[in-house]
């Protein structure tokens, strides 16, 4: 029963995203990348496969992150602003189901954009003569899990703050969390025990987006695929983190006056 509710809500989000042409912007960007890479290949630029792969995963990471944040950050606030939240909440569904369905829709829309972009980038890379490798599938899978986590973080932030603030903070978390974690790691050794405890706490609550991004491994030649247990572990971490975020959003939204 709940899955049907979630799917109905998710389908609405997906359909709106498709018709709003957000995803087409991604497709056009992908085509530009493909055309540019194809042009390099046409003019006989050799030995740039590594550069092309690096560029491909960077562009994929960047645009899919932008899509994930922009799609998710306005979902809940738009429902309130347009008063469409009321007919939804007037149905016999819980507020948790509403959040879960909306999150599911945002994740699916983001994944669809990512897959379109990935397909176009793959074509461009093939034109460059880049060989297909198993690690590329692992990259795509882990990236999609990471995007799901990012959607959950953004939805949660949008339950606590304005859409623009939620989007800004999501960008900071998405692009800055790795840097913050690196900084904390460096400062850890020279800090007092209390500060070390505090750093550990910050590290544990920050989403570890860096773990989901094996783009550098894909870009560099001769890297072995990631062991399956690691992929499984990351998948479990991603699901748990997104679930935790959803619960946090629900704790704010469950009794919020709307």
């Amino acid at each position: 029963m709940k899955l049907r509710v979630w799917w109905a809500l998710a389908r609405g989000v997906l359909l709106e995203s498709l018709r709003r042409k957000d995803l087409w912007v991604v497709a056009i960007l992908g085509m530009i990348i493909m055309a540019a890479s194809g042009a390099l290949g046409f003019f006989g630029v050799e030995g740039l496969q590594t550069f092309a792969k690096d560029l491909g995963v960077t562009v994929l990471g960047l645009f899919s992150t932008v899509i994930a944040i922009l799609t998710t950050s306005r979902l809940l606030p738009d429902e309130i602003k347009n008063r469409t939240l009321y007919p939804l909440l007037a149905r016999p569904i819980s507020r948790f189901d509403l959040l879960a369905g909306k999150l599911m829709g945002a994740i699916l829309a983001t994944w669809l954009a990512f897959v379109i972009l990935l397909a176009l980038t793959s074509v461009a890379l093939l034109m460059f003569g880049v060989r297909f490798e198993v690690i590329m599938v692992q990259y795509a899978l882990l990236k999609m899990v990471g995007l799901g986590v990012l959607c959950a973080v953004t939805l949660t932030l949008s339950a606590f703050m304005t859409p623009s603030a939620a989007a800004t903070l999501s960008f900071v978390v998405a692009f800055g969390s790795s840097m913050i974690v690196r900084g904390l790691t460096m400062a850890y050794e020279t800090s007092s025990p209390a500060m070390q405890w505090f750093f550990k706490f910050i590290n544990s609550i920050l989403p570890q987006f860096g773990l989901f991004d094996i783009g550098p491994r894909v870009a560099n030649e001769n890297w072995a695929p990631v062991p399956l247990w690691v992929v499984g572990g990351l998948l479990a971490y991603g699901v748990a983190y997104a679930g935790g975020m959803l619960l946090l959003a629900w704790s704010k939204f469950r009794s919020q006056a709307v």
């Binding site: 359909l15 008063r83 009321y86």
Partner: peptide, 25 residues
């Protein structure tokens, strides 16, 4: 329930809008 002046999903049709609400019902 009918809310005061709602702007129903701009990129859905009335039939799709009612289908969505109906499924939740």
């Amino acid at each position: 329930y009918l809310p005061e002046v709602a702007l129903y999903y701009p990129y859905l049709t009335p039939l799709e809008t009612l289908t969505l609400y109906g499924e939740l019902q």
